[in-house]
Structures are given as C-alpha cells and as structure tokens.
Design a protein around this nucleic acid. Sequence first.
DNA 1: GTCAATGCAAATCGTTTGCATGAAC
DNA 2: GTTCATGCAAACGATTTGCATTGAC
Lengths: 145, 145
Amino acid sequence: MENENKLIDDFKDLLKKKGMKFTEQRAIILQILFSIDGHLNAEEIHDVVKKDYPDSNIGIATVYRTLSFLEEANLITSISFGTEGKRYEGNTKKHHDHLICTKCGKIVEFMDSEIEKKQEQIAKKNGFEITSHNMQIFGICSDCK
Amino acid sequence: MENENKLIDDFKDLLKKKGMKFTEQRAIILQILFSIDGHLNAEEIHDVVKKDYPDSNIGIATVYRTLSFLEEANLITSISFGTEGKRYEGNTKKHHDHLICTKCGKIVEFMDSEIEKKQEQIAKKNGFEITSHNMQIFGICSDCK
DNA sequence: GTCAATGCAAATCGTTTGCATGAAC
DNA sequence: GTTCATGCAAACGATTTGCATTGAC
C-alpha cells in the first residue's frame, strides 16, 4: 500500500507537470493495470472497471484515452499481434519480451540478456534508438500443436 | 522471366492441389508481392493493382482474401506494428527480421544468426514451435530522433 | 469561474461476410 | 454444367471524435 500510494503520488505529479487533471477514472485505470498480472486489452480493462468499481461508470472512450496517455508516459507497455488490438501491462516488472501463440493467444514472458545486447548492437548500427525495447516471437504453443 | 513463370507455374500447381481455381486476380496480386521490394498493406496493394493493371478492377475484398490465402500457403509473410494493420512481402529473400520506426514507419531488415539460435532455444524450452519466425524490434530511427 | 475530462453516440478505419453474378474447369 | 471466385455493398469490431455536460483546480 505504500507502493500504491507512491504510484498514485507520482501519477499526480506527472499530471500536474503536464497541466492535466487528476481524476478518479485515470486513477482507477492505472490501479488496474498495476494490480492485475496479465496483458489486457481496452475492453477487458473496461470490464474490470465495471466489475470492481461498479459505481464509477467509466466510458470506453475514457479507457482508450487513458491508455494512450499512460503508454506515451511510459507507465504501461503495449504488445499486439495479428489483427488483435493492443494489450497492455503495467511497467512494474523488469523488462522482458514475449513469446506469443498465434493460435490461442497465450503469452509467455522471457528475458535473455544476450539477445538484448545483440538487439542494441543491431539498432545502433542502423541508427535506431530502441525506445520501447519490444520484441515478440510468434509461434504455436504446445497445447495448440 | 523464367523465374516469373516458375512462380506462376508453382502457384497453379498449389491451387490445383487445393481444389482452387487459377484466376487473373490471384496471379496479379502474387506478381505484385514478388516484384515490389517493400512491405505493403492491403490498401496499398489495391492501389498498385489499380495503377499497374487498370483494366482488371480487382475488389478490395479479393485482395484481402488472396492475401490471407498466400500467407497461409507461406508464399508471403506479414508483419504488423501498433494499430497499423498487416504489411506483406513476398517470400523471395532469405529469412530476416525487422527493425521498425514507430514514428515514421520505416522498416529496416536485418538478420542475426545468433539471435535466431537463441530464439529457437527459448521457444523450445517453453514448448513453442516457431512457425513464422517473426521478430520485430521497435524504436525511433535516426531521421525521427 | 475556467478549462480540461468525461460519457455518450456518431463517425471512422481496416477487415470480413453474404449474395447474386461471372469465370474456371 | 458445376463449382468456385469475384465484385459489390452491407456488416463488423476496434478505436476515435464531436459535443454538451461535469468536475478538478
């Protein structure tokens, strides 16, 4: 809960710095992303809001607007594959990459420092700056084979 | 042109094997993907059709249907990032990965056999079979920095 | 009191589908 | 002649936008 307060306090500071207002809706969406362990899309986040905060009545448009802002502010990260829209996760954990099953959508997180290093080298060689450091490997998981 | 004929001949064989018909529309779309060096989305392919084959009048639905089939048949490969839909390229070249600028959409191709090996190991360890072998690194290119 | 944020509904974008017509076999 | 593919337009799902109202400051 100390962490939670810090999260909210930092968020308030950020909003103030940007001349934006701290609202209950934004706080709720941020909380959800940092308390749920998974990769949710906008609709699923909206469902969680309706379930866990039934009195708040947040519109789906607000969810989308908030997600865009949070991603831009680097508080959350998105992944996406195929036609499926974006899925988001709070930036709590260490950086990691994703192994995604294109059949069932299962997502496995992994981290390999050697690949990371190689990626950096390749990016630098091509004049790129890896901002989001986002790699995705697509395949078929054991359940779907 | 010998290659081109081989491409078309192989395509005819594949269609026959699947009980599907060889049509001018399918041939045109295949040709475009194998003659243009780049990563086009469905709309852009449709534009090329209208420009380079003005008499053919191919509907956008046919473009989508053909692209889905060609991808499934492993004749073309798709990549996608962000909200942007899929972009396709003909499977002429050796396997390679993509470095994508999330600002301007510029795509740089690269290949690193060490990363490939590592990817395989990670996938295997997690019970995944890498079908499309598709990795994308997102960042900001030098022009957009 | 001012200005940004919200909820709602309408609009938009990319993609898919249903169906009658036309083309491949 | 049969069956599959096509073009068209309508339908669709995810996301965005316009606008009047509400709420934060």
